[in-house]
Amino acid sequence: MRKGQYQFVTGFLLAPMALYLIFVIWPYLQTIGYSFTDWKGQSQTFGFVGLDNYAALLEDNVFLQAIWHNILFLVFIPVITILLALFFAFMLNAGGRGGAGGVTGIQGSGFYKIVYFFPQVLSLAILAVLFGAVYRSDQGGLLNGLLVKAGLVDAGRPVEWLNEPSLVLWCLLAVVVWHGVGFYLVLFSAAMQSIPKEIYEASLLDGAGRAQTFFRVTLPLLWESVQTSWVYLGITAMDLFVLVSTMTSGQFGGGPDHHSEVMATVLMRNFLYFGKSGYACAMGVVMLLLTLILSVVTLRATRRERIEF
């Protein structure tokens, strides 16, 4: 960029920057300030307590457990979602073997593309209601109804999906993945379509099978999309407030007995229900730091040489 261009760009950015500063950065700074107080959230009277809130966080088993759950989600949500989305996108765009040497998707790929995107148009609130019905803990639930009909589960002891400490996290994970795959499929599809067909044709001529085409051609050329998706999904995994708080038991979710707790649910409970707002602000700051570290690590760890085409 030539000299003076920065000023030009800045001129355009002034208004959005001001909004950003007032509505994002300023509340941020306030939160950090409140995290050093014993603020109760319902008035402007509070005392300064220094680092007490942070010290208490280190001994708060519920919060530590919540971090652990977030980390679990952080590992599994991106991996499973991206793998599934990549697989489907590949099959839809380059998995077909019909025609005379042309590179196409499998049969009916246009139809599938639309169907896969359906979950994405549902809002999280609808999703929670929908899967509430799927996981319902008596025979009225979709899963239990099927399992009982199939004779796999005793009608008198249905599986209490969201009330089982060992199942609840996986049930939530399934919802997130189900909801997300469609979006990333479309994202990867778009990226795949920008890959020149000649490359595929060349590899086909060289006798590459589906797997080889995928790992040697598609994946390297999609790397930037995958990287972005990873950050996106990582952020989803750090949040998950809406799903957990609506689907699981407890004030702002997290049940049974804290087994599905994530940082955001612990934060909200302390902030609104227990009136420990200063303490909750400290949790918010920890969440921010973890998310920042995560995104820096992700962007660095996945950095590769870019291939221009």
Partner: peptide, 15 residues
Amino acid sequence: LITVPTMSFLSACAS
């Protein structure tokens, strides 16, 4: 993108 989702939580805390 990274910062927005966490921001919303933090700003929930701000008075």
